[in-house]
Amino acid sequence: MVKVPPFDATEQFRQIGDQINQAVAAVLASGQYVGGSNVKEFEQELAAYVGCTDAVACNSGTDALYLALRALGIGAGDEVIVPPFTFFASAEVVSLVGAKPVFVDIEADSFNIDVTKIEAAITDRTKAIMPVHLFGRPANMTAIMAIAKQHNLYVVEDCAQAIGATWNGQQVGSIGDVGCFSFYPTKNLGCCGDGGMLTTSNPDLAQQSRVVKEHGSPKRYYHSTIGINSRMDAVQAAILRVKLPYLDKWNHLRKEAIGRYDQYLKHIDGMITPKHCPGSVWNQYSIRFAHADRDAIQAQIRAQGVITITYYPVPLHLQDAYADLGHKSGDFPVSELVSQQVLSLPMFPEISDEQQQYVVNTLKDALA
């Protein structure tokens, strides 16, 4: 039996471990563990990569989203449009600033927000649209930006799974008012813990984010607003600086692996492979089962050593935390259908052809 994990960072560390160890050792020797030159230089390097003037390092992708909403002045009485098929943080931060998440269903083939349904959800309380570039596939930013401009709304891009992705040649995170990135270890650019970044070409938004993330303090011990503690530590910044130059190569390797999955899975009945988009960076390769019992298939292939993940088994509008919004089953039928069908196969840059063939053969046996 072959064991194939959903994600494996060990091969990546084997390749560049010496560089990471040297970078971490230098931070430890410096005695400067929070902030400092590594964080500042990583902010500059990431801003240049994304194509923005400013980048603000923080503790997580969740905090980046929170800081974005705070910087935009979104709060009590406001509404933010969010897809219901995404990680909980996308809506959670809306609630944390006192606003209301307003859900808009997704497209079944892209897993991203259905732009044709956005305008119907806009009210006089709507302040922003938060597209999520889910699984590394960019949302339709042309349509989203046009809607936002027409209705005078902000756009906050949730790029947690999509660093390096492009829409019409432009990097995600540079198209809307603010971009928000996660560097959780499973992301295309991952650190060895938690980390996040906010990107923008609006210097006022960048400065407001910096104030909020430092306890609302523009100057030490002087506090202009209620803030949070959301600093990136220097060790994580140093690791990410080592990894950033490899990101495009790793994203290319992901695309090559996707091509192999497509080839091996194309003749399997009852399985829907993900729609391609030229600018995708494939954080996940998520298939759908049109007729088979997804959970039973997942359990069966797990017993054969193939570990898959269900992103996401319960859409946000049906989570207990949002029961007060009064949603029920059937309100967002595409998200509900996809949540019962989708399964993310093992995906990382170094996944081998042999591993992928084993994954696919195990799937075929389970379906048979």
Rank of each mutant, 00 (worst) to 15 (best):
Y358Q: 06
A47E: 06
M271D: 05
G31P: 06
Y154L: 05
F13A: 05
N229M: 06
D78M: 01
K213D: 01
D18E: 15
T200A: 06
E11R: 14
D158E: 09
P218M: 04
R260N: 04
R294F: 03
G136A: 03
Y246A: 13
A290C: 05
Y184W: 11
G75P: 14
L205T: 11
V306L: 08
V82A: 15
E354P: 02
V281G: 03
G196V: 02
S344L: 00
F135A: 04
C58Y: 02
G17N: 03
L247S: 08
M145P: 07
G75L: 13
P278W: 12
K243T: 04
G190Q: 03
I113D: 01
I106Q: 01
G227I: 03
V156A: 11
A143R: 06
V34Y: 13
I113V: 15
G98Y: 04
Y49N: 08
Q208S: 11
P333Q: 15
G179F: 06
L189F: 02
V102K: 07
A71W: 13
F13V: 09
A64T: 05
I144K: 02
G196R: 03
K100D: 03
E214V: 01
E45C: 04
E92K: 13
A68S: 15
Q12Y: 01
N188M: 07
Q357N: 11
Y312K: 00
G176P: 02
N202A: 06
I147N: 14
V156S: 09
M347I: 05
L153Y: 03
A23H: 05
W250N: 15
V156G: 02
Q12I: 04
R14L: 07
L247F: 07
C159K: 04
A206C: 08
S280L: 00
I122G: 12
V155G: 11
D18C: 00
G77L: 14
G270Y: 09
V2E: 14
P274S: 08
E41W: 00
I287T: 14
Y66P: 04
S344G: 05
L28M: 13
G51S: 10
F332R: 03
S30P: 08
F85N: 11
G270N: 08
A76G: 01
T10W: 01
F13P: 02
V56Y: 14
M232P: 12
I287W: 05
T116Y: 03
T362H: 09
V102N: 10
H317G: 07
I307G: 00
F7D: 05
P315F: 01
M347S: 10
A162R: 00
Q150W: 00
M1T: 13
I118S: 06
V82M: 05
Y222C: 08
G73F: 12
A323Y: 01
T186F: 04
D124G: 05
L316S: 12
N229G: 07
A296W: 02
A238P: 09
E79D: 14
V359W: 01
P101K: 06
A108M: 10
F42R: 09
Q300C: 08
D18R: 09
Q15V: 06
L247Q: 07
T62C: 12
V211Q: 04
E45Q: 15
L198D: 07
D353I: 09
V314M: 11
G98K: 06
